[in-house]
Structure formats: C-alpha cells, structure tokens
C-alpha cells in the first residue's frame, strides 16, 4: 500500500511536469483569488468609500493606484472587486455546468425524444446572442445584486457543457464496460453515476472552465453597459464608473487599467487551464502540439 501512495505522489509530480499548462493556469487563478480575498481582509475598507480622499489623484506612495473621481482609493476598490467578480464567475459557472451535466447526460443516455428536445433547445439558445436575453432580463430587474447577476449569466452558460457532455455520453454508452455493468443488473441511475460520470470528469472540468470564463465575460459586458449591481464592487462596475466619469478621455489611466489588467490575467489563467484540460480529455493532442 505504501508504495502505491508513493507511486501516486510520483505520478502527480510527473503529471504536473507534463501538464504545465493546467498547473500554471490554476496557479494564476489561485493567485488572483488570493490577492482578492486576503487583500480584502488586510486593506482598510473605508478607503473604498465615496469621498474618502481627494478625487482624481495620480498614483503616489499614499495611493499606489491613485484615486478616482468619486475620491475612492483605486487599489482598495480593485481588491474589493476581485472576490465579487470571482464569485459571480464561479457561481454562474457551477450553476451552468450543473444544468449542462444533467441535460447532457439525459440527452446522451436516454436518446430519442429526450435527446431531440434537449438538443433543439440548446441549439436555439445557442443561436440567440446571449447578451440579448441577458439585457432584457437585467433591464427589468429593479435592484441588481451579485447573486442575481450570477443567476442571470448562468441561465446562458449551460449550452456548451450540455453539448460536450452529450457527445461524450453517446460514445461512453456503447463501451464494453458499461455493457457489462448493464448485464450485471445495474440500474440506469447506477450506470450513469458509477460507470459514466467518472469517465466524464475531464470533460466536466473543461466544461466548468468554459462556463466560468463565458460567465465572467458576459458579466463584465453587462456591467459595462450599466446593468450590473450598482452598489457593489466588481471589476466590470469599475470599468463602468471609469467610463461614466470620462476617465479614458481624461487620461486617468490609473483608474481603468488596473481592472482591465486583472480581467486579462484571469482570462489567461482560464485559457491555460482549459488548454491543459484539453490535453487530458484528448490525449492525442499531446503529440500534435
């Protein structure tokens, strides 16, 4: 047994070396999240209140990223914004993935009419630009909160996982070991949970990353349009306010560039992670790339 554990540790290390993409992607994301959560605990939250300092100060030793036109410390606002944006992304990604896995498994496993209905609905929603529906919903909500934002975005984050899981389930269903389990008298539910789900894990992980990054992208777009949670700190709202107060044309680069930088870092992390997961899900890619 002991050798098995050592073997496992050894394998994990080898995996990390092989899959630098996934590991570095996750490292980037964890780093951003840590900055957000640890930073939020360290900084003085009052620095992010309207009117805390003089408005529009350039970066200096007192204010590393300057202050905005509402006289808030940009660094403080930035740090407080990260957890909320991450929260929206993870929540929306999880909800979207949950829906996607259930629908994908159902479509792939049952086939027939169930498959037809789920596939058609997914295709229809796929064709409608998501932002259109989200704008309609968001404009009709009186007070937007972070959780509400996540739910709205999640309602359109399930198509990709649904398609990917369905395709995989279709092929898994015909595998010999599933057939054997079925002959052994396992029920449909057992087959799905015990035999198929474990083999779907890489695809589920890839689907999660895809829906998180889609959710964050959509959130930031909605927020920039002015449909985000007005009273909360998020990266998208920072950009919205910066634009609202004309920070770009006034040359207040220290206001709008930090949230953009953090967003880009988050997306690069997600991109690396999904490329890494791709290699696990499709081992053949390892040779060509």
């Amino acid at each position: 047994m002991a050798t098995m554990y050592r073997d496992r540790a050894h394998r994990a290390l080898r995996f990390a070396r092989l899959n630098m993409l996934l590991v570095s992607g996750l490292a980037v994301i964890v780093a951003v999240v840590l900055v957000g959560y640890v930073g939020s605990a360290i900084i003085n939250q009052d620095d992010a209140r309207v009117g805390a300092f003089d408005p529009g100060l350039r970066p200096s030793r007192d204010h590393l990223l300057g202050t905005d036109r509402q006289a808030r410390d940009v660094l403080a606002v930035l740090i407080l914004s990260i957890p909320n944006t991450v929260k929206i992304g993870l929540l929306a990604g999880a909800v979207g993935l949950g829906i996607g896995v259930v629908l994908g498994l159902a479509a792939g496993y049952f086939g027939g009419l169930v498959d037809l209905v789920i596939r058609t609905v997914a295709d229809v929603v796929f064709t409608i630009p998501g932002i259109a529906i989200m704008i309609i919903v968001a404009t009709n909500i009186r007070t937007m909160s972070v959780e509400m934002m996540a739910l709205i975005v999640a309602s359109l984050a399930w198509m990709y996982p649904t398609r990917a899981i369905r395709a995989q389930t279709l092929s898994l269903r015909e595998r010999l070991y599933v057939e054997v389990a079925r002959l052994n008298g396992e029920s449909g539910m057992e087959l799905v949970v015990k035999q198929m789900l474990p083999n779907l894990l890489p695809y589920i992980a890839a689907g999660f990353v895809a829906s998180v990054s889609g959710a964050i992208l959509a959130t930031i777009g909605l927020e920039a349009l002015g449909l985000g949670p007005q009273g909360e700190f998020t990266l998208g709202m920072m950009i919205y306010w910066a634009r609202f107060y004309g920070a770009i044309l006034r040359g207040m680069w220290w206001w709008w560039s930090p949230p953009i930088a953090v967003i880009v870092v988050i997306f690069i992390g997600l991109l690396l992670a999904s490329a890494g997961l791709d290699r696990i899900a499709n081992p053949r890619l390892q040779r060509t790339k």
Binding site: L217, I220, G221, R243, I248, L249, I260, L270
Partner: peptide, 12 residues
Amino acid sequence: AVPYFLLGIILL
C-alpha cells in the same frame, strides 16, 4: 484573452 471592448479602451 482580452475582451473586445477592453481592448477598445486601451486603443482609445
């Protein structure tokens, strides 16, 4: 990895 409109802000 950069959303379109953020690139727009930078270019602007």
